[in-house]
């Protein structure tokens, strides 16, 4: 048991070794959010911003419903009229893609919020309250973790093929996807629970809810941000997987359904490679943006941690 910390001046100590500023009470740092920014995060946010703006604003200017088939001549090449050409169903590829990205993002964010909310509530409470409550809850969590999501979705999709409500898919992903994050958050809380400042809060008169919200939550919030973005990734990915197999509601434009239609209509054989390549590139870019943002946040949070 070492009482004395390493007395060599480590860079983390140096950062902390400023004389306490006495002048202005109540001021924490110069700008509270500037520390967040690093190259990776900025790039990721820019990409996501482009996608968000593009997919939510541009549809307002769509000349007509891109999902409507036979609007144009089939398989037209790239031209000023059709920036990505048209596809085998007579739809404008670009407009379809824009709507597809929008729908995928809506699904992703909806699932992200759902999963984050449920897993946070369950993880925090199970980790902190402990006892029989924790044991029962973790039993449920572990059961859900071991249930494989994709096979279930495939089975469901096969059973109600074509009659899938788009948001039912989202709901099912939430139901089967919350468990993993809940477990992670619970383990974080388990270790936080032992820390001295929790006892300090207790002796300051704080009750369980106050401790959860004011003491524990800030330490978990970094993970939550990263987890939220990863969940979006996960949701879009799962939906796309289903759509490519044809088990999602393929009438609704999503990144996956484009690929489904393109494969079913032999885009490569008809020479309409744009139809297939465009959604793939868009998916890759979107995932890149999400990934960069997620790891960018992670890096930013980590760089702030002195002695965590």
């Amino acid at each position: 048991m070492s009482d004395i910390r390493d007395t060599a001046v480590s860079p983390a100590d140096l950062a902390a070794a400023e004389p306490a500023p006495k002048a202005t009470p109540g001021r924490r740092e110069r700008a509270s959010w500037l520390w967040l920014l690093n190259a990776r995060l900025v790039l990721g946010l820019i990409i996501i911003a482009i996608f968000l703006l593009g997919s939510f604003v541009l549809p307002l200017f769509a000349p007509h419903d891109p999902a409507q088939q036979a609007t144009y001549m089939k398989n037209l090449k790239i031209s000023p009229a059709h920036w990505l050409g048209t596809n085998g169903l007579g739809q404008d590829t670009l407009w379809y893609l824009i709507f597809a990205v929008r729908n995928s993002l809506i699904l992703g964010i909806f699932v992200g919020i759902g999963i984050s909310a449920i897993s946070t509530a369950i993880g925090l409470s199970a980790g902190f309250i402990g006892g029989a409550y924790e044991r029962i809850v973790m039993l449920i969590v572990d059961s859900f973790i071991t249930i494989p999501l994709l096979p279930i979705l495939i089975i469901l999709g096969a059973l109600i093929r074509g009659n899938n409500n788009f948001f039912t898919i989202g709901l099912i992903i939430v139901i089967f996807g919350w468990a993993w994050n809940a477990r992670t958050i619970r383990s974080m809380v388990l270790s936080l629970r032992e820390r001295e400042f929790i006892n300090m809060a207790r002796f300051s008169g704080a009750g369980t809810l106050a401790i959860l919200v004011r003491e524990i939550f800030p330490y978990v919030s970094a993970y939550l941000v990263v987890g939220f973005i990863n969940t979006i990734l996960f949701a879009i990915n799962t939906e796309a997987t289903l759509a490519v197999i044809g088990l999602s509601k393929v009438d609704v434009p999503t990144l996956g359904s484009i690929i489904f239609w393109a494969l079913n209509y032999n885009a490569l054989f008809t020479g309409n490679t744009t139809w297939l390549v465009a959604p793939i590139v868009a998916t890759i870019l979107l995932f890149l943006g999400l990934f960069l943002t997620s790891t960018g946040f992670n890096a930013a949070f980590a760089s702030r941690r002195g002695v965590a």
């Binding site: 001295e196 400042f197 006892n199 300090m200 809060a201 002796f203 800030p218 330490y219």
Partner: peptide, 13 residues
């Protein structure tokens, strides 16, 4: 109480 590690006794946030 007064605890051993003054830096751990308060939340960083």
């Amino acid at each position: 109480p007064i605890f051993q590690n003054p830096f751990e006794a308060f939340s960083r946030y």
